[in-house]
Amino acid sequence: MRLVTYLNEHGIQRAGALIESDSAIVDLLAAAEKITGNAIPEFASILSLVEGGKNALDAAGALVARAPTIAVVQRDMVRLCAPIQPPPQMRDCSCFELHLRQSFAAARRARVANEPNPEEALKLMNTRADDRVIETFNRQPIYYKCNRFAVIGPDDDVIWPSYSKVMDFELEFACYIGRQTKDVARERAREHIVGYTIFNDMSARDAQAREMPGMLGPAKSKDFDTGNVMGPCLVTADELPDPYDLLMIARVNGEEWGRGTTRDMRWQFEDVIAHISRSETLYPGEVLGSGTVGNGCGLEQQRFLKPNDVIELEVEGIGILRSRVIKS
């Protein structure tokens, strides 16, 4: 299934599933009421559906297959939220080594751009701090916790934060936890993934340059309202039998800026789940981002966004997450 959360005409979140090549949505609660005569609580939201487990998902699949006309709304007549907005928790991981290496290299080139001899200055630059990050990355999964209340969907604009002059997008793959787990082995971790989506981790690069030397991870470079864009849907795990063979493409105003593939994940979600769940409980609906795919942001090529740019992030099998960035 391709699960979505949308706002009805009263501005209330409703749980649904995309049908008819994503042109229409089956409202799950309305379908259940029509077919069974009952308002089934598991269909009140995508989060409650995920919390309901396999039985609830199977029941939802049966409703979608029948799709009573009274429960179908046209996609272009409603506003999509993120699949779960807000999620109970979210973490952004670093799973693509190429992105790290290219970002560090681009940042070093930027720092020496005004030197009399940039190439010579680049050769003399101390790279120990960057090397330590790569060493840590290859030793274990690394991640930070995001602001879950900054999550928005594909029909919302990203509001340019007032303190930034250098904005960037980041193309990420993301998974949703499907059931409560703790101390799970890697070999069993995929059983705890309910589905996948696309994540645009918007980043204020100038704020990031100022705060990262503090070595506590990103803060105001990532934490601002509308900074975490997710969608357009949650594709259930059965629809993506091999999540590690998906093409990923980033475009700005219709121009391709970069592409990569989930094959390049140094750490797969199973590795990340096994690592995070050590002595810590994960709950249904939590989100784990993959980190940026190599070539999946402007920083790697020293290109940045302008107000009113339209970002399109595509992941094979999921769709396109489209966002406009505006200044308020």
Rank of each mutant, 00 (worst) to 15 (best):
V78A: 00
P41T: 10
I40M: 14
A30I: 07
R91H: 10
V72I: 13
I70N: 05
N38C: 14
A56G: 13
A59Q: 09
R75Q: 00
L49W: 02
S23E: 09
A44M: 07
Q89C: 13
V64S: 10
G52W: 03
I46F: 04
E33Y: 08
A39Y: 11
D92N: 15
Q89F: 15
G37M: 09
V50L: 02
E33H: 08
A39E: 14
D27L: 04
V64W: 04
I19S: 01
I70R: 03
E42S: 15
A56N: 12
V73T: 03
A60Q: 12
L57F: 07
C81E: 07
R79A: 02
A56T: 11
P41Y: 10
V26T: 03
A82Q: 01
E51M: 14
M90E: 04
A62I: 09
A30C: 07
S45W: 10
L47F: 05
V26I: 05
A24R: 12
A32T: 11
E51I: 11
E51N: 12
L28C: 03
I40E: 15
P68M: 07
R75T: 00
T36M: 09
K54S: 13
I19W: 03
D27Q: 01
P41D: 12
P41R: 11
L18F: 05
M77G: 10
I70P: 00
L63N: 07
G37S: 11
F43D: 02
K54R: 13
A59G: 13
M90R: 02
A39F: 12
P83A: 09
L63D: 04
G61N: 13
I35K: 12
D92M: 11
C81Y: 01
C81K: 04
Q85M: 13
R75C: 01
E42H: 14
L29N: 06
Q89A: 15
M77D: 15
A82V: 02
L18Y: 00
A62E: 14
A65G: 06
V64A: 11
K34R: 14
V26W: 00
E51R: 15
R79D: 01
N38G: 14
C81G: 04
V72G: 00
A24N: 08
V26H: 02
E33M: 10
S48C: 02
S48I: 02
S23G: 08
I84V: 13
S45A: 11
L47H: 05
D58N: 14
P83E: 03
I84N: 09
G53K: 04
G61D: 09
R66S: 12
V64L: 10
R75S: 00
C81V: 02
A24W: 04
V26P: 01
D76Y: 00
I84A: 06
T36W: 11
Q89M: 15
S48W: 05
A30Y: 02
L63E: 05
E20S: 12
E20Y: 03
A31N: 08
Q74M: 06
I40N: 14
L80M: 07
E33R: 11
A32F: 10
S48T: 12
I19N: 02
A39V: 14
M90I: 08
V26L: 03
G37D: 12
L47S: 08
D27A: 03
E42D: 15
V50P: 01
K54A: 13
C81P: 03
